[in-house]
Amino acid sequence: GSPLAQQIKNIHSFIHQAKAAGRMDEVRTLQENLHQLMHEYFQQ
């Protein structure tokens, strides 16, 4: 897949890990990143 698709997959797993660790501030930051990446992805 594209590097962007790979990045989106990575962030999904980072979010999963951050949630499991209870780091909600990190989850929020990652979700904002994910949102931006998704936006770029669909602009392609």
Rank of each mutant, 00 (worst) to 15 (best):
M38F: 08
L34N: 00
Q36E: 09
S13L: 10
A18N: 02
K19I: 13
A20V: 11
N33A: 15
L4T: 05
G22C: 08
F14L: 15
A18M: 08
L30R: 01
Q44C: 15
Q7V: 10
R23N: 11
V27G: 01
A18L: 08
G1V: 12
F42G: 06
H16R: 14
I8E: 00
Q44T: 12
G1D: 14
K19Q: 11
A20N: 07
E40F: 05
L4G: 03
E26K: 06
L34H: 01
A18W: 02
N33G: 07
L37F: 03
E32C: 13
R28S: 05
S2D: 12
L30D: 00
A18Y: 02
Q17W: 07
H12I: 15
G22M: 04
R28W: 04
S13H: 13
H35I: 12
A18G: 01
Q7S: 05
K19L: 12
H39E: 12
L30Y: 04
A5E: 14
N10M: 14
G22I: 02
H12Y: 13
K9S: 07
Q36S: 09
H39L: 13
H12P: 02
Q43T: 09
Y41T: 02
Q43H: 10
A20G: 04
H35V: 10
E32K: 11
K9H: 07
I8V: 03
Q44F: 09
G1I: 13
I11Q: 02
E26Q: 09
Y41E: 03
A18R: 01
N33P: 01
Q6P: 03
E26P: 01
K9E: 06
G22A: 03
E32A: 10
M38Q: 04
M38V: 10
L30C: 08
M38S: 02
S13D: 15
M24W: 15
A5C: 10
R23W: 04
E26C: 14
Q36P: 01
M38T: 03
F42V: 07
Q36V: 10
H16M: 13
E26H: 05
E32T: 07
G22R: 04
I15W: 01
Q7L: 14
H39Y: 08
L34G: 00
I8N: 00
A5S: 09
M38N: 02
H39D: 09
H16Q: 15
F14K: 15
R28E: 06
L4Q: 03
Q36I: 11
S13E: 15
A18I: 04
E32V: 06
H39C: 15
L37H: 01
P3H: 14
H12C: 09
R28F: 05
I15H: 00
H16K: 15
S13W: 10
H12S: 05
S13R: 14
Y41C: 15
S13N: 13
Q31H: 08
M24Y: 12
Q31M: 13
Q6K: 07
K19G: 03
H35E: 09
R28T: 06
N10T: 12
I8M: 04
I15P: 00
N10F: 06
T29S: 11
E40T: 04
S13C: 15
I8Q: 00
I15S: 00
